[in-house]
Amino acid sequence: MARNAYCNTSRLSAREAVDATIVCMGNVLFDASVSNGACTIQDLLNAGFTCAEIIEHIEDAREYAARRLALQDA
């Protein structure tokens, strides 16, 4: 799934864009995990995230995805 399917950060402030990137990346992680059992770095690159974005935001995105998974399982 391409990143643009999840978010468009072009009209957001810097802080909002970071938050949106984390949510978008988290959604990619969640969707790939649900459908494939895991999400790889290549999945994130294919979704349009840069290496720098992945390095910077992966931990927060993982936490977001984990919260979504926990809500789904509740």
Rank of each mutant, 00 (worst) to 15 (best):
E56V: 08
Q72G: 07
S13I: 02
V18T: 15
R68S: 06
D60I: 00
N27F: 03
A2H: 08
A20W: 02
A38E: 12
L69E: 15
A61N: 04
A32M: 13
R68E: 12
R68F: 02
Q42N: 10
A61Q: 04
A38S: 13
R11D: 15
I41F: 12
S33V: 06
N36T: 08
A66L: 13
F49S: 06
F30T: 06
A70E: 14
A70W: 02
R3V: 00
I58P: 12
L29A: 07
D43W: 11
S35T: 09
N4G: 08
A70Y: 11
A65G: 08
N46K: 12
I22C: 01
F49V: 05
G48P: 05
R62L: 06
V28Q: 07
A74I: 06
T21G: 06
N27Q: 09
N46H: 05
D43K: 05
C7S: 12
D73Y: 01
A17S: 14
C7R: 03
S35L: 13
A17D: 00
G26R: 06
S33G: 10
D60A: 11
G26M: 02
R11T: 14
L29N: 01
A14K: 08
N4W: 10
M1R: 09
A32E: 08
T21P: 11
R67L: 11
T9L: 03
L71P: 07
I58R: 15
A66I: 03
I41A: 10
V18E: 06
L12D: 00
L71F: 02
A65C: 09
E59Q: 10
I54Q: 10
D60F: 00
A61S: 13
T21R: 07
D31Y: 05
L44Y: 00
V23T: 10
N27P: 02
A38H: 09
A47L: 08
A61W: 01
R62A: 08
S13T: 14
A14P: 12
C24L: 05
R68L: 07
C24Y: 05
V28H: 02
I55T: 15
V34S: 03
R67D: 15
S35F: 05
H57M: 04
N4A: 09
C7A: 13
E63W: 04
E59A: 02
I22P: 04
L45K: 13
A32R: 12
R67P: 06
E63C: 11
V18I: 12
S13H: 10
